[in-house]
């Protein structure tokens, strides 16, 4: 249904830690692997071994540079998939009802058998979270691994998105952001998690944890640097003798 539910029972989503993401693309590829083999049509690739290889991915990692006012430029790796917005414009524009937001957990999905591939939802999404599969002609997007997170054929501990399970650095967290007591909500509170493009009014469920301050001294800058015990070797040996005496 292209109407958004007025509220959802849960707000399942991801919390992505920009302070920890090393930009390894593991989440990108595990997502591709899982979603090629599972939900809906496979994620196809065109010109796979040719001049312009291009395929459908539900999760991509960008790299940005930030130049602070003082100090060295910083590099930030930035994974991005569907943010499962509460006010998801991609859903309301859909003419067919293929796009919908699940009432029980807030996951935004495309029902591929209804999708006509008009592309409007991708236009409506501010974040570039939807990609039209060129072979199937249907809209693809992150499913939050809806076919994993409740899957009784998977061991309990594996009932989490493929990208979260694989992330080597532990930069991706999954949980209910509607529940203030959940680990993800606490993490967001602790680390000042943010929304992307809040001005778009989409109310994303996924949150990003900003990078911690960089290039700052860990010890009190006012604390003295190392106090010399000696300036040259002979003085040093005197100190050494005294110190060894005490050991």
């Amino acid at each position: 249904m292209t109407q958004l539910p007025t509220s959802t029972e849960k707000k399942l989503g991801l919390v992505i830690d920009l302070d920890t993401c090393v930009g390894c693309h593991a989440c990108v590829v595990s997502c591709k692997g899982w979603n090629t083999e599972n939900y809906g049509a496979p994620l196809s690739d065109q010109n796979a071994y040719g001049a312009d290889p291009t395929g459908t991915f539900l999760n991509r990692v960008h790299s940005f540079e930030v130049q602070p006012e003082r100090g060295a430029a910083q590099t930030i790796h930035f994974p991005k998939s569907c943010l499962h917005c509460e006010d998801a414009p991609c859903v309301t524009v859909c003419p067919t009802g293929a796009s919908y937001k699940r009432v029980e957990d807030g996951i935004v999905l495309v029902n591929e058998t209804d999708c006509i591939g008009c592309g409007l939802c991708a236009w409506a999404c501010p974040y570039g979270a939807r990609e039209m599969d060129q072979k199937e002609g249907v809209m693809k997007k992150c499913t939050l691994c809806v076919d994993r997170i409740y899957n009784e054929n998977l061991p309990e501990e594996d009932r989490q998105p493929a990208c979260v399970r694989t992330c080597p650095a532990g930069a991706r967290h999954f949980g209910d952001l509607g529940d203030e007591t959940s680990d993800v909500s606490k993490l967001v509170a602790e680390r000042g998690g943010i929304d992307l493009m809040p001005e778009q009014g989409t109310k994303p469920v996924n949150k990003y944890l900003p990078p911690r301050p960089k290039d700052e001294a860990a010890i009190d800058v006012l604390a003295p640097f190392l106090e010399p015990v000696a300036e040259e070797a002979t003085g040093f040996l005197g100190w050494l003798d005294r110190t060894l005496e005490k050991l």
Partner: peptide
């Protein structure tokens, strides 16, 4: 070079 692991480092010594 500040990329990858060096990007997440709290301090970068270039």
């Amino acid at each position: 070079i500040r990329s990858g692991y060096n990007a997440v480092a709290d301090e970068w010594v270039g």
